[in-house]
Simulated assay, not measured.
Amino acid sequence: MDLSILTEALASKSYDKIAVICDNLMLQVAAEGTAFQNEWPYAIHLLGHIYADDINSARFLWKSIPPAIKEVQPEVGAAWKIGQKLWLRDYGGVHEEIRGFNWSPETQCLVAAFSDIYTRKMFQLAAAAYSTISVQDAALFWGMNEDEATKYALLEGWTLDEASRMLTVKKQPVVAEQKLDPGKLQRLTEYMFHLEH
């Protein structure tokens, strides 16, 4: 079983491609009739789907993994625990599961990259949903301690009320939508028609 394309994707930090690569390789190996279950990088495959924010596919992959593999490869179970927390929208739990396992060198960088994008996503979610948020809640969402969360928010331009320990969100400027001129659309349509005929 040749996993060199997967190894190259991991080495080049092309984490957004991991799930597709693994899916395609799994189909290829299965079509060849090769026994692969004991050698398959299930943890990386699960984490690839989690990184790609494809929890449904991760869930189906988890269900297809033989129970014997789940028993002898604790990293597979640890990867799925992250998926479970995402499925349940347990934002703080995602970070706990990431920190709660000693990841192998093969998965460590992928998990760290996912942690970074997940933290950023949670930051953007908080910025969109709140005008103020407690330091404690922000720390939970972002998987940080309260000092780290405060520093992170302040670096993003938020403000802190020391007395109440509340962060005030710096709202991003709203980008005005550009109006489409019907005359320009008509000219573009005529131009495209002319090119095609």
Rank of each mutant, 00 (worst) to 15 (best):
L46H: 03
N145W: 06
F101A: 06
M144A: 06
L86N: 02
T107S: 15
W103N: 04
Q186K: 09
E39S: 15
V72Y: 04
E75P: 12
E75N: 04
Y152D: 01
F60C: 05
A79R: 01
E148S: 11
I82T: 00
N102D: 15
E96I: 12
I21E: 02
R120Y: 06
H49T: 02
S64C: 03
D54R: 12
T7G: 06
A35N: 10
L6N: 05
F101W: 07
V72L: 06
A153C: 11
I5R: 12
Q136M: 08
I133C: 08
C22K: 01
P105V: 07
A127V: 10
G77C: 13
G100C: 05
H194W: 11
L160Q: 01
W80D: 06
W142Y: 05
V111E: 02
L47V: 07
V20M: 10
E177P: 07
I55Y: 02
M166A: 12
L47K: 03
L155T: 14
G157Y: 05
R89G: 03
P67H: 08
I21L: 04
A52E: 04
V169L: 10
E177N: 13
P74S: 09
S14R: 15
T34Q: 12
E32M: 08
Y91H: 13
R120N: 08
A176Y: 04
V72E: 06
